[in-house]
Computed example of a mutant assay.
Amino acid sequence: MSTGRVDSVLVIVTRQIGDVLLTTPLIHAARQRWPAATIDVLGFEGTLGMLRGNPDIHELIATPPRLGLKGGLRLIRRLWHRYDLALVAEASDRAHLIGAVASRCRAGLLPPRGGSNGWKRRLLAHAVTTSGDLGDVHVVQEKLQLLAPWQSGPAEAKLVAPPSEPLPPALSQRLAPGYVVVHTPSMWPYKQWPREHFRELVGRLAEAGRQVVLTGGPAAEDRATVDAMRGAAPEDRLLDAGVLNFGQLAGLLRGAALYIGPDTSVTHLAAACGVPVLAIFGPTNPQRWAPWPALPREQVVHWHRRSPAQALGQVTLMQAELPCVPCGKAGCEDHRMSRTDCLPAIRPERVADEALRILRAHSKTKPS
């Protein structure tokens, strides 16, 4: 394996928005290792917004999920052996083939098992086998292992959120000090906490004197889930933030007293922004996918597989008290549109009580 001069690095992360954000510790560690190197990131179109303004990155390369023959040939011409090192931060076939095109020296993730592992391993100078959805190694820690041959010690595991951008005046003028951001939508039904649970939570927070600010994306289902909160609290204590870009969303989160949300990319962003986070998890294994907390470098991040409520740093994570939790599947029927019995079992009064406890504890730690 070549451990010599590295002047250019390509990080390949062809997955969804949350996965992209969870790759920023790897990108940051690469920047710390090679301060003068050019570090580019390749991912799918529509997923790289979390990385705009990231000081560790030189260029973002967006590709369509389906390249086609012409698109594939264009990408090959653009990337052919352009980099000294490719870090394949996803285990997919496509990510490994792109890595093979981009550089003669590659480190990459492999799935726990699969017929493609043989040829992928032969393409790599350094391979890291992932532990799977029910493993006990967080994805952030796995991605950092890609740098092991080039590191003399453990790398700093630091999520890098996008820089804050100004909020729309119509929103910023209505924000009250101590507001709580609540993200109600999930991309898939099997990760969706029930709307009626969110409504009760919003009402309880408003009764406690908190302004609740709702966030969601532009998709019709997101808008419908946010709209379903109307009337859950008095108008002066319930505010729809509308559709924000990631920089504006980061600014909104950094000003919040607390963020509450499900297993989604915005929850990971809130953790990266350093705000107190209350995450509502269903079938997903927190040892693999919990929001990454802001902790001192020397403190080990290790989540329990199952706990009614557990906290690390500024992140608190809640799960149902059911023996099947977490199953690591896409809901009870194991498909993206599946029902999930464990999420409705997390009662809204329990989440509200935990949220108010966090708010009280956080107010005590603030300087007067």
Rank of each mutant, 00 (worst) to 15 (best):
R195K: 13
A224C: 10
Q192D: 10
Y259Q: 02
I260W: 13
G261V: 11
A271R: 04
R174W: 06
P154E: 09
L244P: 11
T225Y: 00
V182Q: 02
G203V: 06
V180Q: 02
K191A: 00
V243C: 07
V180P: 06
Q151F: 05
G261D: 04
R204D: 00
E156T: 11
I260T: 13
G209Q: 03
R210M: 03
L244N: 08
M187R: 15
W188E: 01
T264Q: 12
T264I: 05
P168A: 04
P162M: 11
G153W: 12
P276G: 10
R199N: 10
G261W: 04
L269A: 09
G203I: 11
T184M: 12
A232V: 07
L244T: 09
N245K: 09
M187S: 15
P234M: 07
P177V: 08
H197W: 06
L258M: 11
A233M: 01
P162A: 10
A232W: 02
A232M: 05
P185W: 02
R210A: 01
P276H: 08
S164D: 12
V181D: 01
T264D: 08
Q248P: 11
N245F: 08
G242I: 15
Q211T: 00
E156I: 06
T225W: 14
N245H: 14
V275Q: 02
Y179K: 04
E200Y: 00
H197N: 14
P276A: 10
R210P: 01
L238K: 07
D263G: 12
L159S: 10
V182F: 10
S186M: 02
A224H: 05
M229P: 05
S186F: 01
V213K: 01
Q151D: 13
G255E: 09
Q151E: 14
H197R: 07
R199M: 13
P163M: 05
Q151A: 15
Q173F: 03
A256T: 09
G242P: 15
R199F: 07
S265W: 11
L269Q: 05
P166H: 05
D227E: 13
A208T: 04
A256F: 08
D222T: 11
A170Q: 14
A228Y: 11
